[in-house]
């Protein structure tokens, strides 16, 4: 026998539906969030709505590095203190932030906003490889450092970018991989150690 539907306001339903666009948010969590916002934090909800609208209206991709910015060209790309001969390619803005934290890199960036994922049908156009190639061919870039992830997808991405750069006579390099700094072999996963042995270098 069909159960009587629980009465809900249209607006609540639409909010729950909208919250489900967030990664990892299923119907249950979406419902919890919606009730929480409406019941306990209407001011917070208003802030969220405004911030979202403002971000959507103002944030776009930097014409040079593809990272998020509110300007045509972001501040990092405009900075005169960065080395324009180096271009580091990363998958996401979070990866860029990570490389910045090292304080050991002072070149420029290009953010792919993804990676090639052949099994999901994510190809060169989806990650703007044509724009990266145009950026790398500006005449100032001397070396492109490929800092995509060490997953099969990240490796495929790095490989194809390197091939395309080689065809245009632009130097490409790949960040090294291996045992983490301060890592004790006993606690490092076998895959990493296996790769570190294969990628060993002379002393």
């Amino acid at each position: 026998m069909a159960k009587e539907p629980i009465p809900t306001a249209k607006g609540v339903e639409r909010l729950v539906e909208a919250l489900r666009v967030l990664p990892g948010v299923g119907p249950r969590s979406a419902q919890r969030m919606a009730y929480y916002l409406l019941q306990h934090d209407r001011a917070g909800a208003d802030l969220l709505a405004q911030a979202m609208a403002a971000a959507l209206a103002r944030v776009r991709h930097c014409a040079r590095c593809n990272n998020f910015t509110e300007d045509e060209v972001c501040s990092l790309c405009r900075s005169s203190r960065r080395d324009p001969s180096l271009l580091c390619v990363v998958e996401t803005p979070a990866d860029l932030a990570m490389v910045e934290q090292t304080l050991s890199y002072s070149g420029m960036y290009f953010v792919l906003m993804g990676r090639l994922s052949p099994l999901d049908g994510v190809g060169a156009r989806d990650i703007g490889l044509d724009r990266l190639l145009a950026r790398a061919s500006d005449g100032e870039v001397q070396e492109v450092i490929l800092a995509t992830n060490f997953t099969n997808e990240g490796e495929a991405t790095a490989h194809y970018i390197a091939e395309m750069l080689r065809a245009r006579k632009i130097k490409a390099s790949r960040i090294a991989r291996g045992v983490p700094l301060g890592g004790e072999l006993e606690y490092v996963d076998v895959g990493t150690i296996s790769q570190a042995i294969l990628d060993r270098r002379g002393l």
């Binding site: 052949p118 099994l119 099969n152 490796e155 495929a156 296996s194 790769q195 294969l198």
Partner: peptide, 25 residues
């Protein structure tokens, strides 16, 4: 668990690997 130390696929070989996987999927 890791069962054998195969050298990671690279370049076009990696693409071939994706292709085999897609055929199976």
């Amino acid at each position: 668990e890791w069962a054998a130390g195969l050298r990671s696929l690279e370049g076009l070989g990696l693409m071939c690997g994706f292709y085999l996987n897609e055929l199976l999927l």
